[in-house]
Design a protein around this nucleic acid. Sequence first.
RNA 1: GCGGCGGUGCUGGAACUGGUCUACAGGAUGGUCUCAAACACCAUUGUCCGAAAGGACGUGUGGGUUCGAAUCCCACCCGCCGCACCA
Length: 831
Amino acid sequence: MAEQRYDPSRIEPRWQQVWAAERTWEVPNDPGGDRRAKSYVLEMLPYPSGEPHIGHLKTYAVGDAIAHFHRRTGHRVLHPMGYDAFGLPAENHAIKTGEHPRASTASSIKSFQRQFRSWGISIDWSREFGTHEPRYYRWTQWIFLALFEAGLAYRKEAAVKWCPNDATVLANEQVIDGHCERCGAEVEVRQLEQWFFRITDYADRLLDDLGGIDWPEHVKTMQRNWIGRSEGAEVVFRCQELGIDYPVFTTRPDTLFGATFFVLAPEHPDALRLARGTEHEEAVRDYVNRAAGESSEERGALERPKTGVAVGRTVTNPVNGEQLPVFVADYVLMEYGTGAIMAVPAHDERDFAFAQAHGLPVRRVVAGPEGSTSPDDLPYAGDGAMVDSHPHSELQGLHSRDALARIVGWLDAEGKGHASVSYRLRDWLVSRQRYWGCPIPIVYCARCGTVPVPTDQLPVELPDIADYAPRGRSPLDAAEDWVATTCPNCGGPARRETDTMDTFVDSSWYFLRYCDASNDQAAWDPTVLAEWMPVDQYIGGVEHAILHLMYARFFCKALADLGHLGFQEPFQALFTQGMVTKDGAKMSKSKGNVVSPAAIVKRYGADTARAYILFVGPPDQDADWSDEGVEGVYRFLGRLWRLSAEAADLAGSPPDASAPVLDAPAGAEGDDLELLRKAHWAIEKVTGDIRGRFAFNTAIAAIMELTNECSRLRERVDPQTLRAALATANSLLFSFAPHAAADGYERLTGRRVWEEPWPEAEPALLERPTFELVCQINGKVRDRVQAAADASEEELKELCRNAPNVQAHLDGHEIVKEVVVPRRLVNFVVR
RNA sequence: GCGGCGGUGCUGGAACUGGUCUACAGGAUGGUCUCAAACACCAUUGUCCGAAAGGACGUGUGGGUUCGAAUCCCACCCGCCGCACCA
């Protein structure tokens, strides 16, 4: 008698050792004679900090289920792992404790490795790397230089977020509601020289190519919003007194005739210049200074009154020569368009509010829906017939959309404007005044200027330093020996760039490196890349919907343009999993509601943890962790495992290697047939639920149903039937609870479940000779009777008419209509 | 305000293209086993009326389409997420 207690602490390590020793999940780059289609399954690169959390468990439970399914449905699957190992938490830890980020990162990675292995996920560990390793970031630097050579990486002065308390520059992601994420101090803005990537050159392609990829619609929508493309025109307003042209961007050139004033952002370089020498100079200076002291959050506050001051100058409206007074107002943003706007209060809510507050005229030039020209329904932002567009009377009555095209044509011909497209997307600022990141491979030479480090001198290694405390410049500034170098160009003295790269740069190409991870001659061999890319299924949290996913797409397009890649989109399909909460709230240390995967795995085993998290609900939705729910899944796994062990003993030695394991003993009938039908129903159900819709929760429920049926019928069926049914259950379960399933399957069949092809349902066993016919009167269920699957409509009506409870309801009524849905129901409409 | 997602038993959720509402699991109640408990196993479990047969009601609210609506249409309420002066 085999041991009959389900003990994950014995089962799980045993199978993990087999997979590690045999390198089961490794896949070579050269397929050789292997004709199977490739499949690249990838979860988003984890940031190793402390220990993996429950969100990681969910990501890998989903990804591993998909990877296993692809393998067993005839694919060569690449499923690699690595670490996004540069970043702030390790550096902050170093500032606090003095422990080198390399050391703390190494120990975090160790703990991640240990736990990932304890989860039994099917990873090709031979391709593992961390983005902080010189063998990786050497190629990050190489990509930076490739972009630099192509003019896609450039340096300019820019306003950056600055924390006065920590004396450091912050990444945008580290600013929360205008405050430093770490110390809570209010963030300031400073002008510094920064490196940028020219992602805006790719705005249209990033937008258009969303059409060809299989991503959740809401993620595409978020990217579209982020790019924020709008079509319109650039129109030039001239300040005659000073002889300066001010282009503005507008989406509504058709409303030009309604412009009654003109507004500059407080940060506009000419705000003060225009006011100089006027009686308004003092007021404008005050206003600009006040605006500078306010955070963007304060300025963006809802329902904020529209403030602003006149500068005492006018500009000329190019369509009618009118002189428009110029204001400075903080509702105009320097970051968008040209930092200046024409204000059309009749047709723009914000301009309207400003006009009201400052007693400025409102002139309607587009009629409302019913041809309304009354001032009562202003502001009106919609389209309509043109009115009052003097002196261009030919526009009168034209639809505003048509007028728009005419006006833009006219402006163009007159040299006063042209059609234009504006984006919300800005270039990607990649400099970070931080230590623990990838060094930017640039040196500054007094004679030669900005010089790229030659690629054969890469990597520019990150030096060890003693003091990580931020002082407003990169900590690397203090590493004199490292900073001082020679110019690769002229050999004269030069200084290294001391900023490091945004860690999003590291993670924008890691999926490429996995394909050719051990290549020390190049970042990758393009033919190897062609073998695996693009990623067939990408899995991760929706929090990366914009930044990471946009940057990675940009990298691929840029690298493709430079001839390094043969494809445009890195992630063909994307799945975004929901958050795991506890008691309805996000898990956090401060709330004390953190569920540790390690503790769950220790107590119940990885199989229970993984299967539970997939069973709670649809994986794309948030799921609330329930300790009782985990118990339930643990009981289920135990029940299946025990049943399998018992049935294996009962059925005797496993069939020989050539016998088809899941086949029914020929001529099964009665309970045997019933159980086999259930097994094949489960195959069909689980296959459909995994393929196409990632409905792992219902897939697991189906396996539970099959298991319950095995349990119910176990003493009434042939042991061989029971074995076939339980082997099927284990085979289907393998994607979700691999150790228990491999164990149960081996006991039953003597085989390794992962080497078996995905089971296929036999059509004959999916058919049933009879079904339960639902009998309705006026759409209400009145009875149910057994009917033959091939019964004719007439026979079904007859059966329904004769059903006892139907008879009672028909009594004294006349049937006026009969509805028959084959293999389902009959509905009599009676009067 | 705009965009997206969602609202079904006591709880998590199922019901895929209009056709048996509540699969599967949790919880609860009762039982078997046990000296006892845990485990395990079995049974019951939407609400109301009824001894039962059976009936009425029931998927956020109100209306509509249909033989038939959780599902489609209209209006509204609530919750979550994202964006939010983007000209």
